[in-house]
Write a protein that binds this DNA or RNA. Sequence first.
DNA 1: CCCGCCCTGTGATCCCCATCACCCGAACCC
DNA 2: GGGTTCGGGTGATGGGGATCACAGGGCGGG
Lengths: 239, 239
Amino acid sequence: MPSPYNLEVEYNCGECRVRAERLFCNMGEPAVQALDAVKFTGLYPKGSLLFVEGEEPRGIFILCSGRAKLTTSSTEGKTLIVKIAEPGEVLGASATILGKPYEVSAETIEPSQLNFVKRDDFLKYLNTHAEACLHTAQQLSEKYHSAQREIRSLGLSQTTSEKLARLLLDWCDRGGELTAKGIRLKVLLTHEEIAQMIGTTRETVTRLLSDFKKKKMIDVKGSSLFVLSRPQLEHLVSV
Amino acid sequence: MPSPYNLEVEYNCGECRVRAERLFCNMGEPAVQALDAVKFTGLYPKGSLLFVEGEEPRGIFILCSGRAKLTTSSTEGKTLIVKIAEPGEVLGASATILGKPYEVSAETIEPSQLNFVKRDDFLKYLNTHAEACLHTAQQLSEKYHSAQREIRSLGLSQTTSEKLARLLLDWCDRGGELTAKGIRLKVLLTHEEIAQMIGTTRETVTRLLSDFKKKKMIDVKGSSLFVLSRPQLEHLVSV
DNA sequence: CCCGCCCTGTGATCCCCATCACCCGAACCC
DNA sequence: GGGTTCGGGTGATGGGGATCACAGGGCGGG
């Protein structure tokens, strides 16, 4: 099958190979088939806006592959990246359920496959499929959980280096690759975006990273970031 | 019926007068009766710890009356108040659903009635009562929504006065009483607690409040706080 | 090839607010 | 009545980081 953006596309949830690994999608046949019936599969290039903060909820997006950043921004143009969504996550569920405006914006940062379900269809689906409802509750719990982590990081950190250290440690836990040189992280974000993740400025991120380098805690080679001394990083984090 | 702490107690959800107003409890007969069968009603004085951050989830608490503060704290002893929970809210649901440790601590700040449901019972209840599951999803959506607001406030505010102004405006929206002198708020929190809500120090809150007073934006009489000029407060808030 | 754009790196400056230190009044309780 | 505790009010000080300004480097596109 020809697939744009070099994406492996799976149009049929029933045949999806990775379904079992996905918190939400891992449901029994009836629920999956019913989902297949109402969803619209879409392919999106990097930088696609799925929905915008404040907009009335049109429905939910299930992130099948790729990644998306969830952001919120002030009228002054300052932007905060709330979360980088990974495959398997459901985007826009809370707003869709409550019928309130989306509380964040969602934008793909890689070519991505997403399954869209219209609001009415989704609500009907939840009402008729208890299993889907349960999985949605789990998804929402996860989302709340990670929002809570973000709150801790933003509210309890004393200094900006603590926030940055916490972010790096977070990355180690979820995508670190062990090498001889230390834990290798692929950094696909610019300093600007890292700054937006921890609520600071681009310059400060640059300065802190080179400070970490000077102290031999990390090393940067191209888009790879090596964590040389995890203990030192942890030492910066109080909480 | 004799009731400790001057609380009106309702032991029977089926007969609860305010049930219809409560997002979660407003369910049909079967779901309510099943809830009645597994819940334990408890009365708690001010300052009761319902659960503690990091603890394995024992179950959920439904806040029938009273209020509770949800907090998270660093090892250094710094505390952040994440939310003041109001009657009708379900506490500890996300941790209970995921089987992960509670992500916040919950402590009553008024004498409160709470209905407790053990984890296993709650999970069974969700599995057998689709309506309850749907209402739980709504509850979780609400929680996520308010967490998102908190993230915005913590991450996007430029200054502390902005955060404080935002908090006051929030209070106006949810519990303001219109009087000739302006919007009256009953402040039941100490400066210390206000500081913990916006991630700053007690001294700064004191200074900012007296600054606001000097600028005739607010006035304080005992535990009443009058918002004299809402527009001026809004002007401090950029987002 | 060279121009423009985006990302990174760094210096200088300034100000907000955390921190420490102390005082005061009110409530509370031996 | 005299401690004691708790909440509120204020001054002095210092540092962290936002802000502004500019320089270099990689990279794509005309």
